[in-house]
């Protein structure tokens, strides 16, 4: 308990907020953390959403996606970071190690969002889609007006999981020299400075919980009006019914890291 208080005391020491010759300040570390998370999230969305929608809409390539995400789960973050930082050279004008770091973050961020995107579309009742097709909607309209709104909760669930994954991975990258909120943990470990280590842990935890909380709110709002939010649990005694209920509620999709 003492250590937690010391951690907070470390955070609330004004001198720790700005960067000095003695070390990175909390503000700079937070900025770096957010920039890296943001850029990686952008590219993750750019790659995972179209592929996920393709798989979810057509039902093709699902097996491969599952295998790939299992392999991604087994891949150790640190190992991948180490290899790519050594392998990818720096480009002039871009901060050192940014490119390899972002490549790894995106690679590890994709599976959760991909799973969310295709599971979201798959959770939509087949009969609803057939009905949409029967009233003359084009495939594109079905995707836009039926599948995406009805699967939105799960899709945002995937976004939540991916964001957490990214916040975590960015934290870990500090072990290899990237400045982020994780830097306080790794510096603390390196210098046996326990309050600093605890301060880093508190800051990272706070960031993760805030981002998750914000996206949880978004997740509530994207469920279209009129779609039951799993209120009728009792009726859903079949696996299929439960799955549908879970989908409309947006069962959180989580990834360990």
């Amino acid at each position: 308990m003492d250590l937690i208080i010391q951690g907070f005391a470390w955070i609330f020491t004004p001198a720790h907020w700005t960067t000095t010759v003695f070390g990175t300040g909390i503000l700079d570390a937070l900025t770096q953390h957010l920039i890296l998370t943001g850029i990686s999230l952008f590219f993750t969305i750019l790659i995972a959403i179209p592929i996920g929608f393709y798989i979810g809409h057509t039902g093709r390539g699902r097996g491969i996606a599952i295998i790939l995400s299992n392999v991604a789960r087994a891949l150790p973050t640190l190992g991948l970071l180490s290899v790519l930082i050594l392998f990818i050279p720096d480009v002039a004008g871009i901060p050192s190690n940014y490119i390899p770091n972002i490549v790894v973050f995106v690679l590890l961020g994709i599976p959760a969002l991909l799973a969310g995107a295709y599971a979201g579309l798959e959770s939509v009742d087949r009969q609803t889609i057939d009905a949409a097709r029967a009233v003359g909607m084009t495939e594109w309209q079905i995707l836009q007006k039926v599948e995406i709104p009805l699967g939105a909760a799960l899709i945002v669930g995937g976004l939540r999981a991916t964001s957490l994954q990214l916040v975590s991975t960015v934290t870990i990258s500090s072990l290899l020299g990237q400045v982020s909120l994780g830097s306080f943990i790794s510096n603390g470990v390196a210098t046996n400075d326990y309050p600093q280590m605890m301060a880093g842990a508190i800051l990272v935890a706070a960031l993760a919980l805030i981002i998750d909380g914000l996206l949880a709110v978004v997740q509530r709002f994207v469920v279209p009006r009129g779609v039951s939010r799993g209120a009728n649990d009792r009726r859903n005694t079949t696996a299929r019914g439960r799955k549908a209920a879970a989908a409309t509620q947006g069962t959180p999709i989580t990834e360990g890291i």
Binding site: A74, P76, L78, L176, V189
Partner: peptide, 27 residues
């Protein structure tokens, strides 16, 4: 089991020996 085996390497963060050491050393 898959995610635990992979996560154990992060123990290197606080200096606990695991296969994660190979990443740090190699790096």
């Amino acid at each position: 089991s898959v995610s635990t085996v992979s996560l154990a390497t992060v123990g290197a963060f606080i200096g606990i020996p695991s296969l994660g050491n190979l990443f740090q050393d190699g790096f």
